[in-house]
Simulated scan of single mutants.
Amino acid sequence: MDILYYLQTFDHFIIYLVASLLLFGLGTFLFKWLTPYSERDLIRAGNVAVSLKLLGKMAGLVVVLQSAIRSSINLIDLAIWALIAIVIQVVLHLIIEHVFTRKTNLAKEVEKGNVAVGLFLGGISILVGLIVAATISY
């Protein structure tokens, strides 16, 4: 094992880590910005449904970012694919949520603490993230 190799590439690890965390923060911010209620306040109040939904969104983003990291050939490639994937993830989540909200307002159900709805929407975000991640793997 050549420890010198790992020491020489450690800066790449740090750069990709910081870039990925910033992209994760951007994706999470977009999701929170589009949410009609304060997730932070509701989670502090003990709303498990909101926590599950947000956790699912974040997990879906991580899956997408993980795929972008593995598939990228450089930092610019990572940023481009991650941004595309984040936008696709957010748009698909909004579309799917709209499809399921034709007869009921799922956002209000989650806000009221409906754990089943929060878990369902969080799970949908993870599943969509897996699909999006698979499409950017080349």
Rank of each mutant, 00 (worst) to 15 (best):
I3E: 15
L4V: 15
Y6A: 10
D11Y: 13
H12Y: 14
H12S: 14
I14M: 14
I14E: 09
Y16S: 07
L23P: 09
F24G: 10
F24K: 06
F24I: 10
L26H: 08
L26F: 15
L26T: 11
L30W: 06
F31T: 10
K32N: 13
L34E: 12
T35F: 05
P36V: 12
Y37G: 08
S38N: 14
R40K: 15
G46M: 12
A49R: 00
L52Q: 03
K53E: 12
L55V: 15
G56H: 03
M58K: 04
A59T: 13
L61N: 01
L61F: 05
D77A: 10
A79D: 07
I80H: 03
I80N: 01
W81D: 02
A82F: 05
I86D: 02
I86G: 00
I88C: 05
I88H: 01
L92H: 06
H93Q: 13
I95K: 15
V99R: 06
V99A: 04
R102I: 14
T104I: 14
L106E: 13
A107S: 15
K108M: 12
K112V: 08
N114S: 04
N114C: 06
A116P: 06
L121G: 01
G122A: 03
G123Y: 05
G123Q: 06
I124R: 01
S125D: 03
V128S: 00
I131G: 00
A134T: 11
A134C: 09
I136P: 02
Y138W: 14
